[in-house]
Design a binder for these strands. Structure first.
Lengths: 278, 278
DNA sequence: ATGTCTTTGTGAACGCGTGCACAAAGATTG
DNA sequence: CAATCTTTGTGCACGCGTTCACAAAGACAT
């Protein structure tokens, strides 16, 4: 999970669970693809597969929105696209500002996924005076001094922070003071904001760290399996990698290397059922 | 949640809950900051505040790792940094490849948060022959043809996909066939991968959509409050923007609006069935 | 109309995650 | 050594989210 909510209690606004809200964009994306292919209806099973979720979960999610399906048939694609869009608030225009136009900020400014939904980049803002006026994604970068004016004039309520960690808190305070009530934070810092302001965060390195954890675990399990169930990770401590620290690390590394070479996967094609650990 | 896991059952590897694993990087970040300020120990209360979580949750999380604290004192910063790093597998070197060197790929290549943890960008790969050889983040971009060779020679087990959506599935298959077992996917697509391969996804527009939902809700609540408790949003949904009362009328109106507004792209008109729930 | 077949919508059970609250453990002081 | 104080580690309860499994609803055929 690259992200998480901050502050704000449970958000069960009018009954739609947070977990469901987080999946709606997923469904919307799958539905949009179907719509472009002029598919008129989908069953929960098909749509669930396209969105990468369980069909029962999808049906329950939709049940929170209302009864938009037809039993024995499925869901009308166009209709559902509209309903979800409306529920998510994408039928209206959301001006956003991006603060911090470094590599990431520039990438975000160029990202097509924003405009295709209801989002419009109202301004790019950077603290570096040298950046001011420079065009990024066909739009001149403006200086931080203009921040308040831009937000108020454009009625911006969503801000994206792509500054270095050190500047993020201060930027968030200025955004909030100027009227922003939702922040998407890419800076690796915990933002402290008043109640009523939503913050979602995306931390690229956190995602990688989580992958590393699972990767290490996979390597460890493989090593254990290869070693022929030596000590069996005992019930007590969770220290599979702990006990013999040195050897554990060594085996893990060795296994990783082995896996990387040719040991695993002999199949040419993708769907080979993998190694199959215990 | 910018991200979510795909495939792989519950991951309760040797007892560490997934939710805890997802927070370990957060703690690590806070601890690293303390370490840089040469703070010797922290209490769960202080650290929790720095990481933006509840202190009880933090203590419970740490309890899965073992008893690393001292009652009456707190946790030794350096020791905890090491323990968490080890648990996450950051004490070893993780070579990663980034596929798709567009704006986002370039931003990722330049992102400092990778190297500062145990991650090393082994190669930048792009399908565009014109990109080949061009330096990005002080490293020459290599052509997709080299993908397999690069992965095998460097023992890469983690791949980052920053390609357009259309190319992602195919890239993932090549990565996996070459030995990659963990993928961080920035492309807005659901990847289908065999068991044993971990996929985490980050979708920037999804995050914004979730914020928009809450933003809309906030606006709706404000409006409702201002309007002096009109007629309680009916069963249908939290339809803040102009909504008739009866759900039947609402759906009919909604459908008409869908056709009228530009939500849907192409597609003939007559296909909108007057669903009509009872 | 009646029956069959498909697919939705949901009640109910279950499991995970969270937070409370407190006993246990150690530091510290007298 | 005893008393007190601080902070950890965790048992317990609760609520959310997920999944199963099935009745209800509608399409479709006869």
């Amino acid at each position: 999970m690259a992200t998480g909510r901050t502050h704000r209690p449970a958000t069960r606004s009018r009954g739609i669970p947070e977990a469901t809200v987080a999946r709606l964009p997923l469904y919307l994306r799958a539905l949009t693809a179907l719509s472009e292919r002029s598919v008129p209806t989908v069953s929960s099973e098909e749509l669930a597969a396209a969105a990468g979720v369980n069909s029962a979960k999808l049906r329950k999610d939709f049940s929170y929105l209302g009864s938009y399906g037809t039993r024995g048939v499925g869901y009308d694609v166009e209709y559902l696209v509209y309903q979800i869009s409306r529920e998510l608030g994408l039928t209206q225009d959301w001006p956003v500002v991006i603060v911090g136009i470094g590599n990431l900020g520039a990438a975000l400014a160029n990202y097509g996924g924003f405009a295709s939904r209801g989002f419009r980049v109202a301004a790019l803002i950077d603290a570096d005076p040298a950046m001011a006026g420079k065009p990024v994604a066909g739009m001149p970068v403006q200086h931080t001094d203009e921040l308040e004016k831009i937000i108020e004039e454009n009625g911006v309520s969503i801000g994206v922070i792509a500054t270095p960690a050190g500047a993020a808190q201060q930027v968030s305070e200025r955004l909030i003071a100027a009227g922003v009530t939702s922040i998407l934070n890419f800076a690796p810092t915990v933002l402290s904001v008043p109640d009523g302001v939503d913050v979602r965060k995306v931390d690229l390195s956190i995602e990688l760290q989580i992958l590393a954890f699972h990767e290490q675990r996979k390597a460890g399990e493989e090593a254990a399996a290869a070693a022929g169930s030596a000590g069996e990770p005992g019930t007590g401590a969770a220290e599979s990698p702990a006990a013999p620290a040195a050897s554990a690390t060594a085996t893990a590394t060795a296994t990783a290397a082995a896996a990387a070479s040719g040991v695993r996967k002999g199949g040419p094609e993708g769907d080979v059922p993998a190694v199959m650990p215990a």
